[in-house]
Write a protein that binds this DNA or RNA. Structure first.
Lengths: 222, 222
DNA sequence: GGAAGTAACCTACTTCGAGTAAGGTGGACT
DNA sequence: AGTCCACCTTACTCGAAGTAGGTTACTTCC
């Protein structure tokens, strides 16, 4: 847990060891990252509605108007956090998927990375789930980020598909649909597996690969 | 759309035709249903955070403390709405699935009902998606309702599975996992299909059946 | 070194909405 | 008619989102 180190420490660390100075100025980009980090924790801890900008500001070691200067609104801050989390998730899965020889193997590796991310970065994951509660402009804004995830899977599947099938799949929208399906199913699976402590990311990933690759036909008796 | 008739009309309708009396008393159960109905609309319209209890109360034609008397808190009202929506969704799919001869057919019918529900009752569907944003006690409270959905699918699949497979699947948790997977994948698919106006519920259901039943192996070139 | 400029930052406010206290009113039943 | 209870209201508190306007520290150029 990163909560062992409280936010103000970061500020002091930049100043120097154990100084009395309570606060320190900081370049914009750095402050911004720090704010996102703290906000992520607070949102995850309290939930979006219950989280207060005052608390976030205090834990950053800065006053409220700074938050508004950088992120314009509470929802803006949330969006920034979600975007950050999504970007990280994408980085992780993209890297895991690279250099896989077959489609099935790529799927397996990607899913392992995905479920691993969820285990290790619970806070970030909670934020991504939160996305659904946004309405209007904010949700449109995130649409791009969200699509990258499914696009990754779609192109991935395209890579391992023979040309004719790929063309057909693309035109019919089946490829996109499949990608959405993978993402949605795995998210739900992740939520489900959180409540069972006997499951490692590898096991869950294996469940998902089996279900996805083989389909339900193998479970039902035809 | 039920929004052709504004909320106050309901009140007057109970009183009698075209009376001058602005408001009318109403038995608790009926008021409660009405409140849930209005709240569903407002939450869907504005989003949970932006929706105000004052507006809901006004559109119901009643004062705010009534809402609190019946639902205890804003989140309580949201939970009531979600529960209602989930219950309806469950009714619809359960009915559609009944009397299907095969597992595949049951899946198809169930999914058609599901995607049809999403098209016809957009507001209710938005609420169900909202569930993810709840935290703590409220989300636990809804866990039961949520499980009914996956349980339905799980038992459904169990019904069409030969005994040995079923026992294995049950013990390993694979059956539950599969059910979660189906639900999650379809939810995402639903969100995706909302943005494309060329897709009927039947087509989307067919996509889903193909993906689920046959698996991805049929798309990729092995 | 010091003046000028600017980016980071603050205190002190307004506003709006969730939640509450305490009291009014109308219909049902004796 | 009178009493009772469930339904309903007005009028508040309080906490948190968002803002106006001033202050401080770091940089730059003479």
């Amino acid at each position: 847990m990163s909560s062992t180190a409280k936010a103000p420490d970061t500020t002091e660390a930049a100043t120097g060891p154990g100084q009395g100075k309570p606060r320190k100025r900081m370049p914009r980009a750095q402050r911004e990252r720090q704010m996102i980090q703290v906000a992520e924790a607070v949102f995850a801890e309290r939930g979006y509605t219950a989280a207060s900008m005052d608390e976030i500001a205090e834990r950053v070691g800065v006053s409220k108007p700074m938050l508004y200067e950088y992120f314009h609104s509470k929802e803006g801050l949330l969006v920034a956090c979600i975007r950050e989390a999504r970007a990280e998730l994408r980085r992780v899965t993209e890297q895991a998927v690279a250099n896989s020889p077959t489609g099935e193997e790529a799927l397996r590796q990607g899913l392992r990375a995905f479920f691993g991310f969820i285990r290790d970065r619970k806070q970030a994951w909670l934020l991504v789930r939160h996305e659904a509660s946004l309405v209007g402009t904010a949700s449109e804004e995130l649409e791009t980020t969200r699509q990258q995830q499914t696009d990754l899977i779609a192109t991935l599947m395209g890579d391992f598909t023979d040309p004719e099938t790929a063309r057909f799949a693309e035109e019919s929208g089946l490829l996109q649909a499949a990608a959405e399906f993978v993402v949605g199913g795995c998210e739900r699976l992740a939520i489900w597996s959180e409540q069972r402590d006997d499951l490692t990311p590898e096991i869950v990933a294996e469940y998902a690969v089996n279900l996805l690759w083989g389909g339900l036909a193998q479970i039902a008796g035809r």
